[in-house]
Nucleic acid binder design. Structure first.
Ligand SMILES: [Mn+2]
Ligand SMILES: [Mn+2]
Ligand SMILES: [Zn+2]
Ligand SMILES: [Zn+2]
Lengths: 126, 126
DNA sequence: AATATAATGCAACTAAGTTGCGATAACAAA
DNA sequence: TTTGTTATCGCAACTTAGTTGCATTATATT
């Protein structure tokens, strides 16, 4: 059902994602905000923000859950789909605004695709 | 260091993967072989078979670890990379023998990519 | 201010996967 | 076949990301 009340935790999380464009893992958010909010709260606020189309989530290379800001999504329609990139050196994850078409696969119906590219990011790639 | 002794558990696991071509999750293998082997053993044998290039692993949509047979890989070289397909209805996962080139990404060095396509499989897609 | 209920904190829980260690069983040498 | 080495196994205890139930608190509405 998404966010209904503008609480401290909602504001704090939105603030984290407004620091930059890169993705943040739930784990990292819990560590950063440990003194201010319970981890249950953080998980629940992230859920609600995702429902609203404010954030989207995906799994990183170790199966951890990552979140990033959505562009042009709403509660009714999540249209901002794209590959993600995880740096093998510094661990940073971000959204790639490139289009990767899924080729036709015989006898199968493709619904979603999640693409995680790994390598060296802009900072780590000399 | 891979498999050195041909034990019962190694044989049993290889047998599971020789029933067909589709991927099997560690979880599923543990359930199936529960009466015969300890889960620790299963995780460890899977590790070793992967080291040998007999199996390869990847994460499914829920972050569970899946394994499938390798084609033409060895302990020294894992060359069998490809996308995977997970059926949203029956849960089945298999390897796709299609080539999906990763486009060039400015200022980044691409090392690996994992692609998980989700939809309806051959059996579930009427 | 009073009310309704969304949201929070806490503790307990779940479940996939890992670790340490003593016991067992491959396998090769004798 | 017997023996010795050690890879492998089973077990129990652990780790950790994420979830759940419930009593309490805080936000928004009247
Ligand atoms: Mn993204
Ligand atoms: Mn595969
Ligand atoms: Zn980096
Ligand atoms: Zn199916």
């Amino acid at each position: 059902m998404g966010v209904i009340r503008k609480t401290k935790s909602v504001e704090a999380l939105l603030n984290e994602f407004n620091q930059g464009q890169e993705a943040i893992s739930a784990k990292q958010l819990i560590e950063q905000l440990d003194s201010k909010f319970n981890k249950t709260t953080i998980y629940r606020v992230l859920d609600r923000l995702e429902e609203d189309g404010v954030l989207h989530s995906f799994l990183g290379k170790d199966g951890l859950k990552w979140y990033a800001k959505c562009n042009g999504c709403s509660a009714s329609k999540h249209k901002d789909v794209h590959p993600h990139f995880q740096c093998l050196k510094c661990g940073k994850v971000d959204c790639l605004s490139i289009n990767m078409p899924i080729p036709h696969i015989p006898n199968r119906k493709v619904e979603v695709s999640q693409i995680l590219i790994q390598g060296l990011c802009e900072q780590c790639f000399v």
